[in-house]
Every structure is written in structure tokens, then in C-alpha cells.
Simulated scan of single mutants.
Amino acid sequence: MKGPLLILIAGILWGTTGTTQAFASESAHPIAIGAARLAVGGLFLMGIVLATGKLNVTNWPVKRVALASLSMAFYQPLFFTAVTRTGVAIGTVVAIGSTPILSGVIEWLVLKKRPDSIWWCSTFLSILGCLLLFINNESVHVDSMGLIMALGAGLSFAIYTLVSRELVENRSALSVVAVVFTSSAVCLSPFLLLYDMSWIWSIRGAGVSLHLGIMATGIAYLLFARGLIHVSSSAAVSLALAEPLTAALLGVFIVGEYLSVVSWMGVMLLMLGIGILVWSSKGSGVGKEGGGINEKWRQV
């Protein structure tokens, strides 16, 4: 149960992102917020790993680290651009909903491991719940480029999850996320020069940046990485659908948003889908692949 619970907590922390951004200044561009989030998170993680003396980068697979870093760096602008072009509902559903499917397909093709029936059932219920939760909140606007961006965001997170799972098998999870997110922050650093960042120096801006960087990025992804040791990548991204569930509930109880009956049905389906995966972990380990993952990656 340790792995699924760690990933659920990570998903809950990610779910606070939307509510936190609602308190940011109106002058703060979403992509600038994403870049600041990675910068703070990367510095926080690297500071911890240096303070504890656990940083050891000898014999690391450089290509794997670069792939994980680029995947996380691409996810931020792809997701925010998708939401801007095609709306919050469609952008979120396509990006978050496509991630478990893409992860399962990649896992099937790369690791030759076919997801079991429990994963398919829970993922279907969770994606359907996500669809009902968001699709009823605004008028539907479909933009082809926005859809491509959303699918790109889903693919980026799926690749990050699969590669990270390989990295944490033989290395400290703290070292992995510190190196990956510091590298991702460097990749996105040009955005800090392209957008107005004066908002970050206010008390409210600093609070938003610190929460997004430390809690919703540093601690959340550290928990996610440690959970990946015990959980397959496809199951992990399905469990991470706790993010939109948390975001919706925080929107209701903190921001004062209204959820329709259809949206509440989506909440129930999301909880059911996630609950099935957590319940199945008691006896099956939620798709642990064993020690053959490194060999399969080397063959690829």
C-alpha cells in the first residue's frame, strides 16, 4: 500500500495548483508561473540533496536523465498553451485523460507488459469521471492545435513517468528528482526573461511561488518518485488522477465554485476508479514489474 498512497498524496498536492494560481496576480502569465514553479522546485530539491550529501551523479544514464528533464520541461508550456487555445475543460480532459492511456501503450510497447483488466477498468472509470467533471463547466470549444498540444502534454508526462521509474530503481529518489527538475528549470529559464516577473516579489506572489515550487512540485514529485519504486508507470499515472479530483473539491470548498450534478457524478467515478486501483494493490502490488525493467530499457 505504500506506493499507491505516496502517489495519491502527490496527486492531492498537485491538485492544489489551480487553487493556488487563483491567488496569483492577474499580471502573472500561466507559462511564467510554470517556469517559476520549476525554478523554485528545482532549487529546493537540489538544496536538500546537497545538504544531506546524497547527490551522486556517477554512472548515471545521461540520455535517460535528459529525456526525463525535457519531458517535464515540455509538459508545462504544452499544457498551459492547450488550455489557453481550447479551454480549461477540453485541455484538461485531453491532457490528463490521455496520460494513463499513453503510458499504458508505451509500457506495452517498450516493456512488453500488457496492463491488466483491473487497470483498464479503473482507468476507464477515472477518465470518464474526469470528462464529466470538466466538460460541464464551460461551453465546449475544440481547437485542433490545442488538442495536439494537450496530447503532447499527456505524452510528455507519460514519458517522464516511465523514465523516472527506471531511474529510481537503483538510485535515490531524492537525487533523481533533484537532478531532473534542476535540469528542467534550466530548460525553462528563458521564459523567466520573456514574461513580466515583477509579481513574484510581492508577498502574495512569493507565497504562490513557494507553495507551487516546494509543496506542489518538490515534495509532490519526490513522493511520486518514491511511489514509482512499488508501482508500475501506467498504474501511477492513473492514481495521479487524484489531481483533478482534489482541484475540483478545493474549488468548491475554498474558492466557492459550483459543481453541477453531472460534475458530482464525475467526482464519484473518479473516486471509484482510484479506489479500485488502491484496493487491488493490497494483494497485487499494482503492477510491479520486478527487476527486469533495466534490461528491457537497455534492449530498447
Score class of each variant (00 low, 15 high):
Ala39Thr: 15
Gly287Glu: 09
Leu67Phe: 10
Leu38His: 07
Thr123Phe: 05
Val261Ile: 15
Ile96Phe: 14
Leu132Glu: 07
Gly291Phe: 06
Ala66Asp: 06
Leu277Pro: 00
Asp196Cys: 04
Val255Asp: 11
Leu223Pro: 06
Met145Ala: 14
Val278Phe: 07
Leu131Lys: 00
Asp143Tyr: 04
Lys112Asn: 13
Ala236Val: 06
Ala95Asp: 09
Ala158Tyr: 03
Val40His: 03
Ser103Asn: 10
Thr19Phe: 04
Ile101Leu: 15
Tyr258Met: 13
Met145Asn: 13
Pro244Ser: 02
Val286Cys: 12
Gly42Val: 03
Trp297Arg: 11
Gly251Trp: 02
Arg85His: 13
Gly154Asn: 11
Thr92Asp: 04
Ser263His: 08
Ile127Trp: 03
Gly15Lys: 00
Ala235Thr: 13
Leu55Tyr: 03
Ser238Lys: 02
Gly3Glu: 12
Gly47Lys: 04
Gly47Cys: 09
Met149Lys: 01
Lys63Gln: 14
Tyr258Ile: 14
Thr246Arg: 00
Ser233Phe: 02
Pro77Arg: 07
Pro115Phe: 04
Trp279Thr: 10
Val110Gly: 04
Ser139Asp: 15
Ser175Arg: 05
Ser233Leu: 06
Arg114Thr: 14
Ser172Met: 04
Phe124Ile: 13
Pro77Asn: 05
Glu243Asp: 12
His211Phe: 12
Asn136Lys: 03
Leu133Phe: 03
Val255Gln: 11
Ile106Val: 12
Leu277His: 12
Ala235Trp: 15
Gly205Trp: 05
Phe80Thr: 05
Ser103Ile: 01
Ala10Phe: 00
Leu55Glu: 09
Leu249Asp: 06
Val180Leu: 09
Val110His: 06
Thr246Tyr: 00
Ala206Trp: 10
Ala240Asn: 10
Leu162Gln: 03
Ser234Asp: 12
Ile33Asp: 03
Val49Ser: 10
Phe224Thr: 01
Val176Met: 03
Phe253Met: 02
Ala10Pro: 05
Lys54Ile: 09
Leu277Gln: 15
Thr16Arg: 00
Val179Asp: 08
Trp60Ile: 11
Ser144His: 10
Ala36Val: 15
Gly91Lys: 02
Ala89Met: 01
Ala35Thr: 08
Met215His: 00
Phe134Arg: 07
Met215Leu: 13
Gly129Asp: 02
Phe23Met: 14
Ile200Pro: 05
Asp116Lys: 09
Leu270Asp: 09
Ala206Cys: 12
Asn170Trp: 02
Asp143Gln: 09
Gly91Phe: 05
Trp279Arg: 14
Gly91Pro: 05
Glu169Thr: 14
Ile293Gly: 09
Val93Asn: 01
Val168Tyr: 03
Leu147Thr: 08
Arg165His: 06
Phe253Gly: 00
Met149Arg: 00
Gln76Tyr: 07
Leu5Gly: 09
Ser172Asn: 13
Leu111Gly: 08
Val179His: 05
Val40Thr: 08
Ser117Tyr: 09
Ser260Val: 07
Met271Cys: 12
Leu5Pro: 11
Ile254Pro: 00
Val140Ser: 09
Arg64Thr: 13
Ser175Thr: 13
Glu295Pro: 04
Gly104Val: 06
Arg85Gly: 01
Ser263Phe: 04
Leu259Lys: 03
Ser175Glu: 13
Ala95Arg: 04
Pro4Asn: 11
Asn294Glu: 15
Gly266Asn: 10
